[in-house]
């Protein structure tokens, strides 16, 4: 499974891809995480990719993605054409306006108010990425929930573990409720 997280600096994009990769390793799977570096990552735009597989990974920088998480309009516009037909698109619906013309065929679209919910429920917009992680993982079953929890706890700043885990569970709940 090839997942791209894309958005703006400060939305926790890179750390999200890191957490998914780390969770997969905790599950005993193979994973590669990659991101934009150096001068490439200046100016706000940001992306983090993760590949998860049961066997050895040979494709280091895939061209097409199974899953795109788009947290800004430019991220959506730049990367939605790279979704595989039948792929999964998850976006923050308050931050992205979709355009059918850009989208490959038969993609599954999920739009939630992650940032808004993060602010209203936790008072912190920054945990929107955790809501997305819980939501995405429930939809796709990319990694085990236990591994995801452990990876989050070990990756977020000390003292914020509880809030981040709660936000992740909020995402699981939204997915369970079938919110799209």
């Amino acid at each position: 499974m090839i997942i791209r997280f894309a958005g703006f600096g400060g939305q926790g994009i890179v750390v999200s891809s890191y957490i998914v990769g780390k969770s997969a390793v905790l599950d005993g799977k193979k994973a590669i995480q990659n991101q934009a570096y150096g001068s490439e990552s200046r100016g706000g735009e940001c992306r983090g990719d993760v590949i998860i597989a049961d066997e050895e990974i040979y494709e280091l920088e895939p061209t097409y993605y199974d899953v795109l998480i788009a947290m800004t309009q430019p991220a959506y516009e730049a990367f939605v054409p790279l979704l595989k037909p039948g792929g999964t698109l998850i976006l923050d619906k308050d931050l992205v306006v979709t355009d059918k013309k850009l989208e490959p065929k038969r993609i599954k679209k999920y739009a939630i108010s992650a940032t808004d919910i993060a602010f209203k429920t936790f008072g912190r917009k920054i945990v929107a990425n955790m809501i997305i992680l819980g939501y995405m993982n429930t939809l796709l079953g990319a990694v085990s929930e236990g591994a995801l929890e452990k990876a989050i706890s070990e990756s977020v700043p000390r003292g914020t573990e509880k809030m981040n885990l709660e936000a992740m569970r909020e995402g699981i709940k939204l997915a369970g409720e079938g919110v799209k």
Binding site: V25, K30, A31, I32, Q33, N34, Y37, L60
Partner: peptide, 9 residues
């Protein structure tokens, strides 16, 4: 730069 900048186990 590729092996340097990918995260793996």
């Amino acid at each position: 730069g590729e092996v340097g900048h990918i995260r793996e186990s």
